[in-house]
């Protein structure tokens, strides 16, 4: 029996999944980061608009790792703390390119539908 709360988390993952994956891969393009660093980067990069929920971030990170798009290792942070950092793999780079183009097609299509008159 799943709790209501857990279900709502899962719904959000569903909604965010593709987008969140793209965001994570994109963030890691600039170098290895740990989980907290990724969430901060997305937040800062979006002008504080996008707040990544940890309940979505960590499952996404572990799923991407299993798909071998990213890999992790334990390193020491600038604050001298042991942290698990993730970095993009070659397969991840390809995936990023593919998802980017998908995203661009999707946004173009969405834009076409949402603003038909402007287009015409």
């Amino acid at each position: 029996m799943k709790s209501h709360k857990k279900q709502s988390y899962e719904n959000r993952i569903e909604l965010l999944q593709g987008t969140l994956d793209l965001l994570i891969l994109q963030t890691l393009q600039w170098g290895p980061r740990h989980g907290y660093g990724i969430s901060q980067a997305i937040r800062a990069g979006s002008g504080e608009v996008l707040q990544v929920d940890t309940g979505s971030l960590y499952p996404a990170l572990h799923r991407l790792e299993r798909k071998k798009w990213i890999k992790s290792e334990w390193t020491t942070s600038e604050n001298n703390q042991k942290v698990k950092t993730y970095q993009l793999t070659t397969a991840g780079k390809k995936q990023l390119a593919a998802e980017r183009s998908n995203w661009e097609r999707l946004t173009a299509a969405m834009a076409g539908i949402l603003n038909p008159t402007e287009e015409a």
Partner: peptide, 8 residues
């Protein structure tokens, strides 16, 4: 991993 997240 989660502990380090919180610490950071």
């Amino acid at each position: 991993e989660i502990q380090s997240h919180l610490d950071e």
